[in-house]
Design a binder for these strands. Sequence first.
DNA 1: TTACGTGCAAATAATTTGCAGTCCC
DNA 2: GGGACTGCAAATTATTTGCACGTAA
Lengths: 155, 155
Amino acid sequence: MTMMTAKDMPRSAATARTGCPVHDLKDMLRTAGLRPTRQRVALGWLLFGKGDRHVTAERLHEEAVKARVPVSLATVYNTLHQFTTAGFLREVAVEGAKAYFDTNTGDHFHFYVEDQGQLIDINGSDITVSHLPEPPEGMEIVGMDVVLRLKPKAR
Amino acid sequence: MTMMTAKDMPRSAATARTGCPVHDLKDMLRTAGLRPTRQRVALGWLLFGKGDRHVTAERLHEEAVKARVPVSLATVYNTLHQFTTAGFLREVAVEGAKAYFDTNTGDHFHFYVEDQGQLIDINGSDITVSHLPEPPEGMEIVGMDVVLRLKPKAR
DNA sequence: TTACGTGCAAATAATTTGCAGTCCC
DNA sequence: GGGACTGCAAATTATTTGCACGTAA
């Protein structure tokens, strides 16, 4: 492994599909061995229905409640982890205790606005990481995180 | 900003000094406006006395207790954050709720062994990140994290 | 029907905070 | 001596778990 750019990255699982979104979602879930329950379909709809997103469990829970899909916070956590295990989401570690989940499942890069706790995708950039070192014996690289931390410019 | 390699990175604050280590430590603290209390000197000693390290608050607390420097976990947290604010440490976000503190304060790169929660410096490597994108208007890039996640090789 | 899911509330884990007592300058 | 520092315990925050009940296949 030596080189990788943002352009190589796979897109999110949902955008690869066509046809009836709800039907596709159910298929997605079944393929992963997950029953397409009301909650999972609703959360999947919120997550994959509008392009790439970054959410915390708490924010997704708020959204679901607003969308009149009452679901417990615990189930949101369960579902996010099931989706992650299934490969529909990727967990992004940025700082502190908050876990962010990203619908763009490939290795890719982020801006992180420290003061707002906001994650921003770096898309279609020429950003390149080269000369990756060999992993230690018996290990393999399973992912790469690149986070550029932002702050308001001092003036 | 376009290019940056591990070789450009500054070393840790402590290794830049010479002479009596304890004296230097106290100087370091005073310079940062921190009183050189017993606990802070002891923690500084543990942190900067043996080259670059990565610690969690909990591990450092264990070490301090073993080294017969009883200090409360709360004070360890306080001290780690004070050192970070002063620029002696850098916080590394890798995953979950754990915060790692690194005595190497420059932007640099890590391996992270997911199963063991272990951080490994990538030192003296040719790893290069180029073509960094411009930050959004009014923002500036204040740091970069690159984490390569490792797992035991499947065989 | 029946195993898988869900919701709730309680349990954990990591970290922070309030405050009374202690220590450096 | 006085404000900065520390330790303890309680409070927060983010997340997980146990278990009775509900529901998709």
